[in-house]
């Protein structure tokens, strides 16, 4: 099952959302999310979650348009 996920992502010609991948593999989206967490931890693929930014300089920051005005990062610095 995990191998199928990696293969599907690797062979996909364009960008892929978790929802689309879940539909293709007929796996419940939340379950797929758990599997992706595992595969990400193992370094087999990566998952970009823009909604999870906490200003800590993780993946989400990279695509963030806040620039140096990131309120979450400045809040974190103050903490």
């Amino acid at each position: 099952m995990l191998e199928r996920i990696v293969e599907e992502v690797k062979n996909n010609p364009g960008p892929l959302t978790v929802g689309e991948l879940a539909r293709r593999l007929d796996i419940e989206e939340s379950a797929l999310s758990g599997m992706l967490d595992y595969l990400e931890r193992k370094g087999r693929l990566s998952v970009f979650r823009p909604d999870e930014c906490d200003g800590s300089g993780d993946m989400a920051c990279v695509a963030c348009v806040y620039g140096s005005g990131c309120p979450r990062a400045s809040k974190k610095e103050k903490e």
């Binding site: 300089g57 620039g67 140096s68 990062a73």
Partner: peptide
Amino acid sequence: VMGFGCNVPAVMATRTLE
């Protein structure tokens, strides 16, 4: 998309790309 804000933190944040 990252450059629309400011390039400085965007460059800094790339450190998390594996």
